[in-house]
C-alpha cells in the first residue's frame, strides 16, 4: 500500500470488482443488445418461418394453424412464383451492375482526383439524397416517367420515347435509390489504395486501362462486393418502387405485400425466398474476401 492509494468509496470498489472480472463486465455490456437481437430479430424471423407452414381459410382469409408444407410446394411448383423469383433476382443483379458502373467513376473522382479539402463535401453531397423520403423520391420518378412527362419531353426531340412504367422503370428507380450505398464503399476502397501502386504500374509500362484492370479492379473488388450486398439485398426486398413505377410488373416484394392480408402463411413462405437468396449471395461474396474487410 502506498500513500497514493485512492480512498475506497463504494462506487470505486464496484468498479474495481468489475475490473477484476472481465467476463462479468462483458456480460453487462452485451446482455441488453443480445436480448434484443435474439428476441426481436431472430425471433421474428423464426415466427415468419414457422407461420409459413400454416394455411389459410380461402373464404375468410383467416389463418388456420395446421402444419403442412403446402406453401413451399406451391412456391416450387407454380410457374408464376418461379418466374417472379427469377425476375426479382434479375432486377437485383441489374440494379447492382448499373450501380457499379455509375458509382465507379464518381467514387474515383471523389476519392482520388478531387482535392482532399473538397472530399468530405462531396461525400456529404453523395449522402444528401438519403435524407429525402424514399416515397417522395419514388413519386418524383413517377412524374418523370409518366406518359408525356419530363423524360418523354426531354427525349422527344431525339425521336425516342421514355420507358414508361414497367420493368425498366423499376430498375432505373432502384438504381437511383441505392446508388449512394455503392459509391461509399468504393470511395472508401479507392481512398485506401496507395498511390504508389498506380505509379508503379505506370512505371512498369502499363497504360491506364491495364492499370485499371490489373491493379485497381482486383484491389477494389472487396469494396464493390460490399456495396453490392447493399444494392442487391435492398433491391430484392423492395416493394414500393415497383408499385409506384413498375406498372404491371410483379416482384417478390409486391407479391408478398399483396398476400399479407389475403394469405399470410403464403406471404411468409414467399418472404423466406429473398432471405435464402441473400444468404446464398453473401456466401458467394464471402469468397471475394469482402466480408473480412468490413
Amino acid at each position: 500500500m502506498t500513500d497514493t492509494a485512492p480512498a475506497a468509496g463504494s462506487v470505486r470498489r464496484l468498479a474495481g470488482a468489475l475490473y477484476r472480472r472481465p467476463r462479468l463486465q462483458l456480460s453487462l455490456l452485451l446482455s441488453a443488445p443480445l436480448a434484443w437481437l435474439v428476441l426481436a430479430y431472430l425471433g421474428s424471423l423464426t415466427v415468419l418461418f414457422l407461420s409459413a407452414f400454416w394455411t389459410t381459410d380461402s373464404f375468410t382469409s383467416n389463418v388456420v394453424k395446421i402444419w403442412n408444407a403446402d406453401n413451399f410446394t406451391a412456391l416450387l411448383t407454380t410457374d408464376v412464383y418461379r418466374q417472379v423469383a427469377l425476375r426479382s433476382v434479375g432486377v437485383a443483379l441489374a440494379v447492382t451492375a448499373l450501380c457499379i458502373l455509375i458509382a465507379f467513376p464518381i467514387a474515383f473522382y471523389t476519392a482520388r482526383i478531387a482535392s482532399p479539402r473538397r472530399r468530405p463535401l462531396l461525400v456529404v453531397a453523395i449522402l444528401t439524397p438519403l435524407w429525402a423520403s424514399y416515397l417522395v423520391k419514388a413519386y418524383a420518378w413517377r412524374l418523370i416517367l409518366a406518359q408525356g412527362g419530363l423524360l418523354d419531353w426531354v427525349l422527344g426531340p431525339l425521336g425516342i420515347k421514355g420507358p414508361g412504367y414497367g420493368l425498366t422503370a423499376t430498375i432505373l428507380v432502384l438504381t437511383y435509390l441505392w446508388l449512394p450505398y455503392m459509391i461509399l464503399p468504393i470511395h472508401a476502397g479507392l481512398e485506401q489504395l496507395p498511390v504508389s501502386l498506380l505509379d508503379a504500374s505506370a512505371d512498369l509500362g502499363a497504360r491506364t486501362g491495364r492499370t485499371f484492370r490489373s491493379v485497381v479492379l482486383p484491389m477494389i473488388l472487396p469494396s464493390v462486393a460490399a456495396g453490392s450486398v447493399f444494392t442487391f439485398s435492398l433491391s430484392l426486398g423492395d416493394y414500393i418502387a415497383v408499385q409506384i413505377v413498375g406498372g404491371k410488373t410483379q416482384l417478390i416484394g409486391n407479391i408478398i405485400y399483396s398476400n399479407i392480408t389475403l394469405d399470410l402463411p403464403l406471404a411468409a413462405a414467399l418472404g423466406t425466398v429473398p432471405v435464402v437468396i441473400i444468404v446464398l449471395y453473401l456466401l458467394a461474396v464471402r469468397r471475394t474476401g469482402a466480408l473480412s474487410s468490413l
Binding site: S196, D199, A200, D203, L204, G205
Partner: peptide, 14 residues
C-alpha cells in the same frame, strides 16, 4: 511514365 524506358524502386516498395 509508361512511355519512358525507366523503372523505379519505390520507398514503400509498392
Amino acid at each position: 511514365p509508361f512511355e519512358r524506358d525507366v523503372h523505379t524502386v519505390f520507398q514503400d516498395y509498392a
